[in-house]
Design a protein around this nucleic acid. Structure first.
Length: 193
DNA sequence: CAAGAGATCATCT
DNA sequence: GATGATCTCTTGA
């Protein structure tokens, strides 16, 4: 069952936790990639100094200000694509960063896209999973309730959630310690423990 | 295995 | 002109 707009149109941290255990589907021509979401982070509105929108509405981050259920994809460090899903109401800039996936379908093609073929290293980081699934900033602003990229609820099994501060945002002052990163306890496929 | 540095450029000041 | 919501490779033990 594909997640609909209402799923994303809620508090960012709730959406973030709810995305754990769901299945990210990426269709590219005749290829269908599937990965289980095992790690996410929430970026929560204009006051969150780690959120791009905290510096106002710019061309890069304007998608975050729009309708929930759209993809916000941008490039960091000049070379890595980062995949986010826009959350909360129209006009409120917030999103969930997808940080890691457990590869489920089309591992062969993911390995071609990445270097090395250790399955634990295919999608275990935000820059890695976009490379494996061929997601680029061309996808910025696409509707993730459509067919190219979407999330499916296959009835996730039971798991525990681990909560930690977010990664790589030392500049965010008092926001750098907010416990807004979530991952599935015991997963072998997360970026760091 | 851990730590450190380099890659590399769009975006914002 | 500076700075990253990162990754990979190299080094050294």
């Amino acid at each position: 069952m594909k997640l609909q707009r209402e799923f994303y149109d809620r508090n960012t941290l709730i959406v973030a936790k709810d995305l754990l255990g769901k299945y990210l589907v990426r269709n590219f021509e005749e290829i269908r990639f599937v990965g289980k979401i095992v790690e996410v982070e929430g970026y929560c509105g204009p006051h969150d100094l780690a959120c791009h929108a905290s510096r106002g509405k710019t061309k890069r981050c304007e998608v975050m200000f729009g309708t929930p259920g759209y993809a916000y994809v941008y490039i960091t460090y000049g070379l890595y694509n980062m995949l986010n899903f826009v959350t909360e109401g129209m006009g409120y800039p917030a999103a969930v960063l997808i940080r890691a996936l457990e590869p489920i379908e089309r591992l062969s093609k993911m390995k071609e896209n990445r270097r090395g073929d250790d399955i634990k290293n295919l999608c275990s980081g935000p820059g890695k999973l976009t490379q494996a699934l061929m997601i680029t900033r061309e996808h910025n602003g696409i509707d993730v309730t459509k067919d190219e990229i979407f999330v499916e609820d296959k009835g996730s099994g039971h798991f525990e959630i681990v909560t930690t501060p977010r990664i790589g945002i030392d500049y965010a002052k008092e926001y750098k310690n907010k416990p807004w990163r979530f991952y599935i306890k015991g997963s072998e496929f997360i970026s760091i423990k």
